[in-house]
Amino acid sequence: MSSDRPRPRFIPPADVLPRPAPGEEPIVWFEMPGGLQVGLRPIHPDDRQALMEGFQALSEESRYHRFLSPMPRLSDRQARYLTELDQIDHFAWGIGIRGDAGAIEGIGVARYVRDTADRTTAEVAVVITDPYHGLGLGTLAVQALAVVAATRGIEVLTGYLLGDNKPMVRIFQGMGATFTHAGPGLVRAEAVLQDDAPGTLGEEACAELIRVAGRASHPSAPRSDDPDQRG
């Protein structure tokens, strides 16, 4: 993943402003080269509505790249599948920015789902809402995903990409992926995770990503916004 492009800067939790309220869900923050601050946190079932709204906000092209189909609506079943995750075999980072009123606004999702036949392999999908294309968010999301995947015994990330989805093709190329033809217009990218993956984001950032992802997969870590879990 070596690249001369400026990299996102990890913002250590102690430096995050405004300070999260006590008990608030942890978010891992980065500052993009252009100055935009983005936060990553695991997706959970409460995100279903936001995910469906985010889907509607995507351009036709982005939707097509994500689902390889011009589907105009996300069915309830799909939305549940994409939010009710076990956080180990199926994990997703929600990517957000701080909106005007201070609330976090979702602008993308990056997920992996482990291959049922080969548990060392997982398929990746990334979607970023259109106004935030070209900022390097896809690259950051895949790197953050790779860090978590590696801790779960996943060694290879794959992706089905349309040939004209140049940003994702480049991200996979950056990971040294090999590409195979997977149908008209479609390639299957396969990248072996490198041991030096933490080097690209920095060890501190990786540790925080792993900590936050691990917390989501741990049932004893209640989320403050879940009424059933609240004390």
Binding site: F67, L68, S69, D115, A125, Y160, A182
Partner: peptide
Amino acid sequence: ELPKTFVGKILRR
């Protein structure tokens, strides 16, 4: 259901 990849991509092939 249409055949899909793990992440939900529809494969016409």
